[in-house]
């Protein structure tokens, strides 16, 4: 197979760029921990009230500036539908679904993950600016999908 000289230049450039992207992504993920949300814990989506983690969804403080938010996504809202944290807090979100597939998405941040029934998914985010953050479901979940939302109140101290 004959390759033109310029085509060789192009393939080296093109494949080199792809390799560079993969290297950057791999280092960010496997060395610095910026992984895509891929939590492996499973639950019984039809019996969340008996689940040790999700029987009482809500916010718990882990240490001075870290919180764990355990949330249930359900057509068409979240339980609880509002949480409050002081500015500068890091919140670990742990979310599952009581019915169909949803998402947990804070627009303008990297928190944007799928919530599949039977599975728990996680992400964490540090809120450095005060304000009322919008959380939406961006995965189609039925006729009321566009109403599905909650709020995160980040309070300045």
């Amino acid at each position: 197979m004959h390759l033109h000289k310029y085509e060789k230049i192009w393939l080296v450039f093109g494949i080199g760029s792809l390799a560079l992207f993969l290297a950057v992504l791999g280092v960010a993920a496997f060395a610095f921990g910026h992984q895509p949300p891929s939590h492996m814990t499973t639950v019984d989506s039809q019996n969340l009230s008996e689940d040790p983690l999700f029987s009482e969804p809500g916010l718990t403080q882990i240490n001075e500036s870290t919180y764990r938010a355990t949330l249930i996504a359900q057509a068409f809202g979240y339980n609880p539908n509002k949480i409050e944290v002081p500015v500068g807090s890091t919140v670990i979100f742990e979310v599952t679904s009581a019915d169909v597939v949803h998402s947990f998405t804070i627009p303008g941040t990297n928190v944007n993950f799928m919530v599949t029934p039977g599975h728990v998914n996680m992400a964490e985010h540090t809120f450095n600016e005060p304000g009322e953050y919008l959380v939406i479901c961006n995965e189609y979940c039925g006729t009321g999908h566009h109403y599905m939302q909650m709020r995160i109140e980040v309070i300045s101290q």
Partner: peptide, 13 residues
Amino acid sequence: SLKGTLYFVLFVG
């Protein structure tokens, strides 16, 4: 010559 092609693909890259 394939100079134009080279510039084109370099632009794409």
